[in-house]
Amino acid sequence: MTKESIRFVGIDPSTKTGFVILDSNGEVVVEEEIRATATKDPARMIGIAKQIKSYLQPNDKVVIEGFAYGAKGKAVDFQYGLGWLIRAMLFTEKFGYSDATPSQVKKFASNRGNAKKEDLVLPLYKKWGYEHHSDNVRDAYIMARMAYNIYNHAGLQKYEQEVLSKMIKPK
């Protein structure tokens, strides 16, 4: 496996799933908000998982956002179902993946684990020159950066190193 063959993937599972792939140099290859084409579950979940799978290549390294255990509302059961379906697909297809909690994603980008989504816009632009209209895609970008930095440690801040060291290791 050469450095050129490794890509770094971030997935923010939701009804509008944020999905980003970085190449071996950390440049954006794919940035998309994946939406279901079906209207009923579990077909919606399966459709999103299939779209994700269609982008993946054998050596991709993935970081997927963990569950927001305190979340409430109608979409929570969908997010849990989709999150587990994507993880099962990654596991079955033998893709290495790590989980990042929502607070780890925020802290990696801003050094604040309790930052609001809108508070991440400026740090993303200042740190990486990245901007996108979708907060789901922005979160996926942060996770793709986390995946990249698991394998490329140069220039990391202490708080970024702390986040990566506490993440659940690749499966």
Rank of each mutant, 00 (worst) to 15 (best):
R112K: 15
R35A: 11
I86M: 04
V28N: 05
Y141S: 08
M89Q: 12
E4G: 11
K53Q: 13
R35K: 14
D41C: 03
V30Y: 03
V30P: 01
N114Q: 14
R145Q: 11
K171Y: 15
P13W: 01
A144L: 00
G18W: 02
P42V: 04
P13A: 04
F91D: 08
Q157D: 12
K61N: 15
G113M: 00
D60T: 09
P123N: 02
A109L: 02
E4C: 09
G96H: 09
K166W: 03
R112D: 12
W84D: 09
K61T: 13
A147P: 07
I11C: 08
G81N: 12
E65M: 03
A43W: 15
D139Q: 02
E160D: 01
L164M: 02
G129R: 01
L124T: 02
A147T: 06
A88E: 08
V63T: 07
P102D: 01
I48K: 07
G113E: 01
K72N: 14
I142W: 00
S165T: 12
R138I: 00
D77I: 12
D139L: 00
K50P: 08
G47P: 06
R35F: 09
Q79M: 13
S54C: 07
G26K: 00
E118H: 12
Y69H: 15
S5I: 15
K16G: 13
G70D: 05
R138Q: 01
R35T: 14
R7Q: 09
K126E: 08
R87F: 11
M1V: 10
K106G: 09
I64C: 05
G10L: 04
P170Y: 11
K16P: 06
Q57I: 10
G10F: 03
D119N: 11
H132N: 03
E131M: 12
F95P: 11
R44L: 06
K61E: 14
D60W: 08
K169T: 10
G73R: 11
L82F: 04
I48S: 04
R112Q: 14
P170V: 13
D135F: 03
F19H: 01
H153I: 14
A154Y: 14
R145N: 07
I46V: 11
V9L: 02
N59K: 14
A144K: 01
E32W: 03
I150C: 02
I48Y: 05
K74Y: 08
D41W: 07
K106N: 11
D60S: 11
E118L: 10
G155T: 01
K94L: 12
L82C: 04
D99L: 15
M89H: 10
A38V: 11
M143E: 00
I150M: 09
S134R: 00
L120M: 02
I34Q: 06
K116P: 03
N25Q: 15
E131L: 08
E32M: 07
F67A: 09
K50V: 11
H153G: 05
L120Q: 02
G113R: 00
G26P: 01
K171S: 15
F108K: 03
F108P: 06
I46P: 10
S98L: 12
